[in-house]
């Protein structure tokens, strides 16, 4: 169960990426930087890597 809802969140972010990637410039690129700063930066969510030695999911 651990990491369950973060897996759902990551799935959502991947789906969102498919739609937004073709139009990333201007203001949508600003928003993209905000999203990455939160989920990858602040929350340290990463691609699934079981047993990562540093940080990542508990």
């Amino acid at each position: 169960m651990s990491g369950g809802s973060n897996r759902i969140l990551k799935g959502f972010l991947e789906e969102r990426w498919k739609g937004i990637r073709p139009v990333l410039w201007g203001t949508s690129l600003k928003e993209e930087e905000l999203i990455e700063s939160i989920y990858k930066g602040l929350f340290n969510l990463t691609a699934e890597e079981p047993g990562r030695p540093v940080g990542g999911e508990a």
Binding site: L42, N44, V54, G55, G56
Partner: peptide
């Protein structure tokens, strides 16, 4: 570095 808990329940260096 130290590891701190975040608001997503992850640990972050």
């Amino acid at each position: 570095n130290s590891l701190l808990p975040t608001g997503a329940g992850t640990m972050r260096p």
